Amino acid sequence: MDIQLPPDFPQSAVDQFDLLREQGLLHYFPTDGEVVTYNDFNFEFKISPSIARKPVLAANAPERRGKGGPFVDPDPAFVVARPGPEHVVELSMHAMLRPHYVLHTRLFAPQTDDLDQGDWAATWAVMLAIRQRAHEPPMMIYNCGYEGGASQGHKHVQVFTEPRPGFALFPAEALALADKAKSATEKTTGGIVQHPNVPFEHFVQRLTEPITPAYLLAVYQRLLDCVRRAHREHVEKKQLDFANGVVSSVANGMAHRPSSNHRKAPSGTDGHYTPADDDMPASTVANNVIMTPDWMCLIPRRRGGKDGTGAGSLGMLGLLWLKNRQERAHWEELGMTKHLVWMGLPRHDQGQGAAAL
């Protein structure tokens, strides 16, 4: 697969970013973050006009089915590379980092599709250029599905220099804890691990050299199998709980019999208990993908947010870019880690430490 980037990339893209910003066409407002630890989970909140101006398509918008959208006919002023015949790299118009790349398919493909080897080849080429030419640590994210936090429906990943909050990101911490639990000479390499303090399902694997598109695809598919199993097991558990007439509360460890969701059969006899709409997932396929040159992490997602307060891939890591102070206050009202669990899938194995699955 022939992947080509301009020889002066990414410096040429940075220059283009600065020019577009100077012209008022690209929105970027660097801001200091507020670091907060809540229930042993680290958050960094940043409020920026870039996010306030960013459009988010409705779940049923025709653009999510390929009928229009900004990536179908991209503005040449924002295009910085065409790595192969299938992909385009643009500068994000609503940036939180400098620069902030959007790598999308040239032809429409839905944002609910899995990433394929071509996607990984183009993504890794951009990341490698950032690491080798700009000497910066790169990161990519893929918000799969509306419930995964995707603002657009045309298949795209985002690439940028890894954010540097005032804390270590939990996938890196999970690997470090797993290494510490092993002998001094044994390092976690192929095992999938989880962080003991993260209350929602997530799956992390260390990446080892040599990194190739085929290798990344294999790691991704392995982690994606874990995501799909977690979605399936969550639904099965909820259905079993309600079939037995019991609703378990992860938050307080109590159980009770449901009342408002008890259905009557057509004959008038008692039917089956059914889960409340708010308890069952809006999606059983959505997920977040985050990758650095050191690790890949996948997070299953049920919902994109509540009343305008949601998160994409970075938000599930605790890195939250917000529209205004009202949204910041809403995170407090929603319970912060409780809201992350509501958008993801609750774990039932906490307390067992970070270990290979």
Rank of each mutant, 00 (worst) to 15 (best):
L319G: 01
W295D: 03
C297F: 00
P300R: 07
R301N: 07
G308F: 13
R301H: 07
L319P: 00
Q326Y: 10
G335W: 03
T284C: 12
L345Q: 05
L314R: 01
W321Y: 15
S313W: 03
W342T: 11
M296C: 02
G315N: 09
L317M: 15
W342E: 14
H330W: 11
I290H: 01
H339Q: 13
T337H: 09
L320T: 04
V341G: 04
I299E: 00
T292I: 08
N288V: 10
E333M: 14
M291W: 01
H330A: 15
D307I: 11
S313P: 05
G304D: 06
W321M: 12
H339G: 04
A286L: 02
W331H: 07
E327Q: 15
G344V: 06
L317R: 02
M343H: 01
H339A: 12
A329H: 13
D307H: 12
N324L: 06
T309W: 01
W342V: 06
Q326C: 05
R325C: 04
G308Y: 11
D307V: 11
L320V: 15
M296E: 00
L334Y: 11
M336P: 00
L319F: 08
L314F: 12
S283F: 09
T284A: 12
Q326E: 15
V289N: 01
V285R: 13
T292S: 13
G344R: 03
P346V: 08
I290R: 01
D294H: 11
T284L: 03
S283H: 10
T292P: 00
D294A: 12
G335A: 07
L319N: 01
G315L: 03
N288S: 12
T337V: 15
M336R: 14
G335S: 07
L319Q: 01
R347D: 03
T284H: 10
G344K: 00
I290D: 00
G305A: 05
T284P: 02
G318D: 04
G312N: 14
L334K: 11
L319V: 12
G315P: 02
L334P: 02
H348N: 14
V289D: 00
G305F: 07
W295I: 07
K338C: 08
L317G: 00
Q326K: 15
L298A: 04
D294C: 03
H339D: 06
G312C: 09
W295T: 04
L317Y: 02
D294F: 05
C297I: 01
G310C: 05
G305E: 01
N287D: 05
E332S: 13
I290Q: 02
G304T: 09
A286Y: 00
E327V: 11
W295P: 00
M336L: 14
G318N: 05
L317V: 07
E327H: 12
R328W: 10
R301S: 06
R303E: 02
P293V: 11
R325L: 09
M291S: 14
V289Q: 01
E333N: 11
M336S: 05
L345V: 14
V289I: 13
M316N: 02
R328K: 15
C297S: 06
R328Y: 12
G335L: 05
K306T: 14
N288R: 07
A286T: 08
T309C: 15
G305L: 06
H339Y: 05
M316P: 00
P300W: 07
R328Q: 14
M316E: 04
Q326H: 13
A329G: 08
R302V: 07
I290M: 12
G315E: 04
K338H: 14
